[in-house]
Design a protein around this nucleic acid. Structure first.
Length: 215
DNA sequence: ACCCAGGGTCATA
DNA sequence: TATGACCATGGG
């Protein structure tokens, strides 16, 4: 089922070419900035950081809180996210940067990321998959919504159980995880909306989902 | 005007 | 451990 849905999405939408970023550090910053925020606003925030010459670990760490918040203002939650970026960069530099982080096993690296303020399961997994090329499947609200509507999981299934489900079904395959999560975001954003009106759903011939149906 | 977006933390019961 | 409040901008 999980593999079949991937085939359908891949055929319907084609290659997604994720993650949109110039380097690995930008992927990590983007992963924090995109929390509960759409990507176009994140790009504005990334541009703000670039123009202030703050799109680097040292740049962010040395940038005053209020100035940093101003740079990333368009991505929303700018005060919290400024703190989160600083916490992340302090950790990143203290760890010794990519050179050192690349040497850790995936499980260890995941635990380290989760210990950083502002980095929860999804953000950690975004970073692991898209910045470190580790075989970790990224679960998000779209994943839960799409597969609960398909009747595959309960609407309130936890993050880890859902991640385990995908990883077991797909095996450790970085490029597949990469593409699949991107396709889920694409389909969730454009078609599988919270408040129905699901037209042109490629996963069912007639996507008759509406408010009356169980989520 | 309302809903949504590529979540996470913290206080409370 | 399980909800709820809170964070905040920009597009549809």
């Amino acid at each position: 089922m999980i593999r079949k849905v991937y085939q359908q999405l891949a055929k319907a939408y084609g290659p997604q070419n994720w993650w949109p970023a110039e380097d690995r550090f930008e992927v990590m910053v983007g992963a924090i900035l995109t929390q509960n925020t759409n990507w176009t606003n994140v790009e504005r925030a990334l541009d703000g950081l670039r123009q202030a010459h703050c799109l680097s670990p040292e740049g962010i760490r040395l940038c005053p809180d209020d100035q940093l918040a101003l740079c990333i203002r368009p991505s929303g939650y700018f005060n919290v996210k400024a703190k989160r970026l600083k916490a992340f960069c302090s950790w990143f530099l203290a760890e010794g940067g990519l050179e050192v982080l690349d040497t850790y096993e995936t499980i260890q690296l995941r635990q380290k990321l989760l210990s950083v303020y502002g980095i929860g399961p999804e953000t950690a997994d975004d970073i692991l998959l898209y910045a470190f090329d580790r075989p970790v499947f990224v679960v998000d609200a779209y994943t839960r919504r799409i597969f609960s509507r398909l009747g595959q999981v309960e609407a309130d299934i936890g993050y880890e159980p859902l991640r385990a489900l995908f990883e077991q079904a797909l095996g450790e395959n970085v490029s597949l995880f990469n593409e699949y999560h991107a396709l889920i975001v694409r389909h969730g954003r454009e078609v599988c909306r919270p408040k129905p009106l699901c037209t042109k759903c490629v996963l069912r011939r007639n996507c008759d989902y509406d408010a009356g149906e169980q989520d």
